[in-house]
Design a protein around this nucleic acid. Structure first.
Length: 853
RNA sequence: GGGCGCAUAGCUCAGUUGGUUAGAGCGCAGCCUUCACACGGCUGAGGUCAGGGGUUCGAGUCCCUUUGCGCCCACCA
């Protein structure tokens, strides 16, 4: 140990920039890839969506991960802690559209001279796909710089040489490689099928991206007519505009009211189309009239009925969400149709209600109801279901064996907290189809697929006829790259080829973050050292998306989990206990908080929340955190100013109260270690903090006189040695939480960074102890000192008021313990007069103060 | 409809195999400028542990049930 170099007036101000710079210069958090897998702790960091700004929720959950990372590093693990940026996908597209006032039109040619206008123009400018992608990449880089600055300020102990972006070349290559392997093994496939479709974004949407919203609607009672005798059959529907898309009626097989109709046909109102009446268990006799019309497609139940009852397709809604111009086969293009064609479904509903009223097929007034309707989570209009050709990855949604295997993976994973596994299970058990990964968008990873064109110029979609690149060509863009054996001029020509126009959904890439960060196939040496990752930290609302999809990909590719622990963080709630979100306008910007309270204070607040628990945003906790950090500075300064020489010379801990203190600190070390091993950083902090305040308020007060030499050299040495041992332990215990304050105080007297120092051990605290340990010595001493303080407070006297006489009554054992610390208590309590003890059942202390002047 | 979680002092929360008078911090009140810290210290008031029932020598802790809040999932005509 070198001579302590303690500032005259310690302060938190200015610590952040100084230590950020120094950590970077010294490479404190640099990953050493020469370590072996069992020496490494690897983290599958969530790549935040680069859509403009980080909010308090990010600060909250990333702090949790960082506390774990710092703990593991101090435990001697080499921490692989990369950082990704999710710049792929719709949020970036949208941001670019708004920021520059542009929209992508893939039919346009690339314009090498294009620069966006200074102000976004009112009708957005249409630009080519390459120009659009160029703008995306540019804007995203600006965002990523701002993100990194905030993360550094938050003291995330990330190795900033290990970064990736989800649209970057490596991510594209790995996404395409993983896809090609899925395809080869039959885990990926293409199918033309009814698909949930967002009419505004004009893209297919996966089950995981759905949300229900309560919307007003109305039951319309409509009559169909039996083909044989013309008798009416009443159905109730919320979507009368889909009558021309009706392919059947359906009722429950046990429903006596409709049993006579099964096998017969009815005709639809307005269009006179003959449709069968079918039986199916999903039909609910309680709902509406008990018999429903099946349309292609009004909702997902229609899709089930359509599939299971083997019905024809009669679709009427186009990709733009409007009723198409021409009626489907079998539906007459009559006057009713022309009233609907070209209208949005909402307008069409209004029109058809009038038509039905006129024809007498609408019975009574529509009954208003509120019902849940499926939306794309980012969308603004209800989803339609249209039939499109899409790419899928098998996820157990249509395969029980695979589903069971994935449930078993979930059970294999260590969840923190454990009950979060239920969300995974309920999601996987509720899957109703495979994972739809293709999107009809522009900014994302393209599918590495070309299609042959037959002699008529039509693409051949058969899986065994696909034109696929070799893996060493990846990444490719099929819209500009050319398949082997073809020349560029064959693009789009009969007998030539055409590229797949779709891109992968962002989750298709995010599901590969362990592979991307670990350099799968690109850097086999690294990958073997970090995969499967030790930790996946993430939020609970994306268990069904990010966590599950990552498990699916690793299961297919490696037959293993992608990570062994999942730490699920909660949400930040505003003081009204609502989830904080931008849309509610209750978001506080993180940089402002970090500047006002200091990073350590904000981290203290974040680290106080247990894993998975939603937490109120509370600036009060930040004030307390700030106070704690300041206390650590001052206590460190004080201890080092009186005790550093004792620590330097070593020396035995001979006083019982000193041994008791070390024993208590050892207990805290044990607690904190256990808590951290169970991913409960909050508990570790709480225990450490409580012990530290007691160390400052009681122990330090009790022994400072002795440490100054009031009782001679040996007792002074014992105190000094104890103070420095405890201080060293506390500084390291706090290091994961308060990285700046601890780095500062550690640097006053120790070599190297506290963040690479070994985590404190029980052994080191006991090693110097020569006397036996009896914690009661410290407890009784603190209790009696407290009573003396209380007497002074009640007498409204200063704490340094001398005590003329003190009588302590307590049990035999406690008096014996107290006797071993009597000198310290007398000194701290300024007991200058008599010290009398009496045996009794419980502690009573009579204090007689010296008379006031 | 199924499931998960939460409910402890005015506020934010601890309370890990059930064990003596239920804890902390904030806030509040009072006191102390004590030679590390006034960005401080000391002391204090404040709770029928959501309601009801049960198991037990003993329940904040275990079981059942009711209520309220939050969330997840669900085939929502």
């Amino acid at each position: 140990m070198s001579r302590p170099n303690v500032p005259e007036k310690p302060t938190l101000d200015g610590l952040e920039p100084r230590w950020i710079e120094r950590w970077e210069r010294d490479g404190v958090y640099r990953f050493d890839r020469t370590k072996t897998r069992d020496e490494i702790y690897s983290i599958d960091t969530p790549p935040p969506t680069v859509s403009g700004s980080l909010h308090v929720g990010h600060v909250f959950s990333y702090t949790h991960t960082d506390c774990i990372a710092r703990y593991q590093r101090m435990r001697g693990r080499e921490v692989f802690y990369p950082m990704g940026f999710d710049d792929n996908g719709l949020p970036t597209e949208r941001r670019v559209q708004n920021y520059y006032g542009v929209r992508c039109d893939p039919s346009l040619p690339f314009d090498g001279d294009f620069t966006p206008p200074a102000e976004p123009p009112k009708p957005p400018i249409a630009i080519s796909r390459p120009n659009f992608v160029e703008l995306c990449e540019g804007l995203v880089q600006e965002d990523e710089v701002a993100f990194e600055e905030l993360w550094r300020r938050l003291a995330l102990s990330v190795d900033w040489t290990q970064t990736y972006t989800t649209i970057g070349e490596r991510s594209r290559r790995i996404s395409q490689r993983a896809f090609l392997r899925n395809l080869k093994r039959g885990e990926a496939y293409q199918a033309e099928a009814p698909t949930l479709w967002d009419v505004d974004f004009r893209t297919a949407v996966a089950q995981a991206e759905l949300e229900d919203r309560e919307l007003p609607g109305a039951y319309h009672r409509v009559s169909f007519h039996r083909t044989d005798d013309g008798a009416p059959v009443f159905i109730e529907t919320t979507r009368p505009e889909l009558i021309p898309a009706c392919v059947a009626l359906v009722a429950h097989p046990d429903d006596a009211r409709y049993q006579p109709l099964f096998g017969s046909t009815v005709t639809t109102p307005l269009f006179g189309v003959e449709v069968p009446v079918k039986a199916h268990e999903l039909a609910d006799p309680e709902k509406g009239s008990g018999i429903a019309m099946i349309c292609t497609f009004g909702d997902t139940t229609d899709v089930t009925w359509w599939r299971e009852l083997d019905l024809p397709v009669r679709s009427i809604v186009g990709w733009d969400g409007r009723i198409q111009a021409e009626p489907p086969a079998g539906v007459p293009g009559n006057g009713a149709w022309s009233e609907l064609a070209g209208k949005t479904t909402k307008q069409a509903q209004k029109a058809i209600v009038e038509l039905l009223r006129e024809s007498g097929d609408l019975h009574g007034d529509p009954k208003p109801i509120t019902h849940p309707v499926k939306f794309y989570e980012r969308g603004e209009r209800p989803l339609e279901i249209v039939t499109t050709r899409q790419w899928y990855i098998r996820n157990g949604g249509r395969d029980e064996a695979l589903r069971d295997a994935l449930i078993a993976r979930g059970a294999e994973l260590a969840w923190h907290p454990p009950y979060m596994e239920a969300r995974y299970d309920s999601w996987v058990n509720g899957l109703n189809g495979d994972w739809l990964i293709s999107r009809q968008r522009f900014f994302g990873v393209p599918f590495p697929v070309w299609y042959r064109l037959d002699d008529d110029g039509n693409p051949v979609h058969d899986l065994d006829q696909l034109l696929l690149p070799a893996e060493d060509r990846l990444p490719i863009d099929p819209s500009t790259d050319v398949p082997d054996g073809y020349s560029p001029d064959q693009r789009g020509k009969p007998g030539g080829f055409i590229g797949d126009a779709d891109i992968m959904d962002t989750w298709a890439t995010s599901s590969l973050t362990p592979e991307i960060a670990g350099g799968w196939e690109d850097d086999r040496d690294l990958f073997e050292r970090v995969f499967p990752m030790d930790l996946r930290p993430q939020a609970h609302e994306i268990i069904r998306t990010w966590l599950f999809s990552t498990v699916v990909r690793a299961h297919h590719e490696f037959g293993s989990l992608p990570f062994t622990n999942a730490a699920i963080s909660g949400w930040i709630l505003d003081p009204d206990r609502k989830k904080m979100s931008k849309s509610k306008g209750n978001v506080v910007t993180p940089m402002h908080l970090l500047e006002q309270y200091g990073t350590d204070a904000v981290r203290y607040w974040a680290a106080g929340a247990r894993p998975g628990v939603d937490t109120a945003f509370d600036e009060g906790q930040m004030k307390i955190g700030r106070r704690l950090a300041i206390k650590l500075l001052n206590a460190s300064k004080f201890v080092l100013s009186i005790a550093a020489d004792g620590a330097e010379t070593g020396g035995d801990v001979t006083e019982p109260i000193d041994a008791a203190l070390l024993s208590r600190v050892a207990h805290v070390v044990d607690d904190a270690t256990r808590a951290f091993d169970g991913y409960d950083y909050a508990r570790a902090l709480e225990r450490t903090e409580a012990a530290f305040w007691s160390f400052c308020d009681d122990y330090l007060e009790l022994v400072k006189g002795r440490a100054y030499g009031a009782q001679g050299d040996a007792p002074a040495t014992s105190a000094k040695r104890t103070l420095t041992l405890a201080l060293s332990a506390f500084q390291r215990l706090f290091a994961p939480f308060l990285p700046f304050a601890t780095a500062e105080v550690w640097s006053w007297w120790q070599e190297g960074s506290v963040h690479r120092a070994p985590w404190p051990s029980v052994d080191e605290l006991h090693a110097a102890t020569a006397s036996d340990t009896d914690v009661a010595v410290l407890d009784t001493a603190a209790d009696v000192l407290g009573r003396i303080r209380k007497a002074k407070t009640e007498a409204k006297r200063s704490m340094k008021t001398p005590v003329a006489r003190v009588v302590v009554s307590d049990t035999t054992d406690r008096l014996a313990a107290l006797a071993r610390a009597e000198a310290d208590v007398r000194e701290a309590g300024v007991v200058e007069g008599e010290w009398i003890t009496r045996e009794d059942d419980a502690l009573v202390v009579d204090v007689e103060l010296a008379p006031a002047d």
